[in-house]
Nucleic acid binder design. Structure first.
Lengths: 226, 226
DNA sequence: TACTTTCTTTGATTAAAATCAATGAAATTT
DNA sequence: AAATTTCATTGATTTTAATCAAAGAAAGTA
């Protein structure tokens, strides 16, 4: 971690950030960007890192620069419930009440942009466009949650799995990847948990979808939506 | 609808509103309240009224003063998916993108407070506390969506139904009702839809919970959580 | 490379929910 | 009040997913 960075480098960190256009950062002018650049840290973390924990006090919010994060809650029975998979350009960590409401864990190596919430709030109150843009990001979280509800309420395992694959494909497109092949970085166990199914059921559903030629495995062993 | 109202009546409409403390309105000072009172309309609607429709342009946001609203989306297959039940003190109708993302339909007679979004936005930008409070309300929606995800991902129908009953009980408490008995205003069909189950399964789950003495029916035929 | 360990798939069996069907209760309409 | 419609419960059967079990594939470690 380089604590001493030139003004020039600070500007560059945010100005040339490859996810800048995906998130509220594009609402900051160069002056602002220079200011906030000084507060922001880029962190590289290996697969399996817990970035933040449910009930911990909120000190930072995060943007994903690359890699995938799984987000889960521990429910009243002590069970893990995955509530989302986050991709480059997604942000996470902001909540009312001062404490994180879920765990965030990397399922691939990740590069994160870590913004101290205190600093961020300052810019929020100064910059109306940023405020609005942040609101859009929260609304997007809500949209995703409702997408998951619509998937979970489906009756058949096959439908759930197919919808899941379509959603991941969409996510890929969202950060500039092609819609096919589908890069399933999460384990069957994670998919099963997300969908309220068992591992074996997910596996069988994928096999059935393949037999029906709704999906297929390409020459590189990667999943394709037909 | 009385279009001519005295200043005095306007102030009273919001100042003495019984849900004022439940929602962002309590962040408005008397001057503000007087201003916004002129814009706000109270509407009484019978059971079964569609208050707003998915994809319609957003002109108003709503607070529930009394009664219950069910919120649902029509998914890509044309199926209805209920994503929430709203109670007095809940607000709905605000979305990014300028169009409502769901239908809102009364399942009891309701009294609503209807606020033109244009006016509301004006106050949002003038009043930082209101802005923050509104953000809290949106975060609360997100929390509820995640609660539904946690319920839907449960494996057994019995668990889903029990969690649903607990949630409704909590909702009642939230607007000043006792936690028991549970007033299930929605039909079995609505509950089943919300939980991703069939009507018969919901009915059987309730029977099983009663046999296990986890719930019981009191002398007035009302459901009690034990 | 060989050896673990973890992850994934498939099969057989059991358990649970959907479906089909009928009846009963409640609410609404006439 | 009677008739109709809607809603809720229960039973029998079928379908689906969970569970139990084992083997094969992939990834990580010694």
């Amino acid at each position: 971690m380089q604590e001493t960075q030139s003004m020039y480098r600070n500007i560059n960190k945010c100005l040339n950030c490859k996810i800048r256009s995906k998130i509220f950062c594009d609402k900051l002018n160069e002056d602002c960007l220079d200011q906030i650049s000084k507060e922001v840290r880029h962190e590289n973390l290996p697969k399996g890192s817990i970035v933040l924990s449910q009930n911990d006090e909120i000190f930072n919010i995060f943007n994903i620069i690359h890699g995938i994060i799984k987000v889960y809650q521990i429910n009243e029975n002590g069970d893990e419930q995955i509530i989302g998979f986050l991709y480059p350009g997604d942000f996470f960590g902001s909540h009312e009440g001062g404490r994180y409401e879920f765990y965030a864990e990397s399922i691939t190596p990740v590069k994160l942009c870590k913004i101290p919430i205190k600093e961020f709030r300052k810019y929020l109150s100064l910059n109306k466009e940023l405020h609005d843009s942040f609101y859009v990001a929260v609304m997007n979280e809500l949209k995703l949650a409702r997408m998951q509800i619509n998937i979970l309420a489906k009756y058949s395992a096959e439908e759930k799995v197919l919808d899941f694959l379509k959603m991941i494909s969409m996510k890929q497109v969202g950060h500039g990847q092609p819609e096919n092949p589908i890069n399933l970085q999460m384990t069957r166990s994670d998919i099963a948990n997300y969908l309220g199914l068992k591992i074996e059921t997910v596996s069988r559903a994928i096999t059935k979808l393949r037999v029906k030629n709704i999906i297929n495995i390409n020459e590189n062993g990667l999943l394709m939506l037909n």
